[in-house]
Amino acid sequence: MLKKVVTPSLETTLKLDSFACVLSGIILLLLSEPIAQLLVSNTFIMFGLTLPDQLKILGIGLLLVGIAVYIVASSRPINAIAVWTIVLIEVDWIIASVILLFSFGSVLTLAGKDLIALSAIAVLAFMILEIYGLKHELQTSSD
């Protein structure tokens, strides 16, 4: 007999996603130098910015996304279009991670490749839970 899999509610998933974004953003802002050294073995400059500066910008972006996701999670009812927007941001993150791994694989350290791959897997997990939660939420509201 198959057991029913219990998944967190859409609100819980979004709030966990928000927390992960905010925490990641803070870590990137505070530890951009050591993280940059962990990611690449040589100095890396793109668009005139060093990797630590790029990581700080990414950190600010993650903080803003995390705040926006929390706002969506706290709204009643949860806006389906906003959730799909979050899902699209997550698709972008996953695609960008794959591009980074293939385009910059020669300059990334093994730890850098692992961190990028693990972050993409975590984002994929949140995305799947959010899609499932939204589907469940829409079914519940239509019943």
Rank of each mutant, 00 (worst) to 15 (best):
G59L: 00
E130Y: 05
V6C: 01
V123I: 13
F104H: 13
F47T: 12
T50K: 13
S119F: 14
T13C: 10
A117W: 07
M1P: 12
S141M: 13
S24Q: 09
D17M: 11
S97L: 00
K4F: 09
A82G: 14
G48L: 00
L38C: 09
V72L: 05
A73S: 14
K135V: 10
I67G: 05
T140C: 02
K4H: 12
L29G: 04
F102E: 08
I81N: 10
N79F: 04
E90G: 01
S74Y: 08
L2E: 06
F47G: 13
A80Q: 08
G112W: 06
K56D: 07
S141R: 15
Q54N: 08
P77L: 05
I57T: 06
F104G: 01
E11H: 05
F44G: 06
A20N: 13
K15D: 12
F44N: 07
I57S: 03
M127A: 15
T85Q: 12
S75M: 11
D53Y: 06
K113I: 05
S75Y: 02
D143F: 03
L129Y: 10
G66N: 09
I35Q: 03
L88A: 15
N79M: 01
V5C: 02
S9P: 02
P52L: 06
L14E: 05
F44Q: 07
I71R: 15
K56I: 07
A125M: 02
L138C: 00
A96G: 01
S119R: 15
N42T: 12
L28Q: 09
Y132C: 00
S142R: 15
D17T: 12
I131T: 01
S9R: 07
G105A: 09
A125P: 01
I57Q: 08
F19W: 13
L108P: 03
V87K: 03
T140V: 07
L2G: 00
A96Y: 11
L31K: 05
K113Y: 04
K56N: 13
L29F: 06
K135L: 11
S18M: 03
I45M: 08
F19T: 14
V65P: 00
S41W: 12
G105H: 08
I27Y: 12
P52Y: 08
H136F: 00
F126V: 02
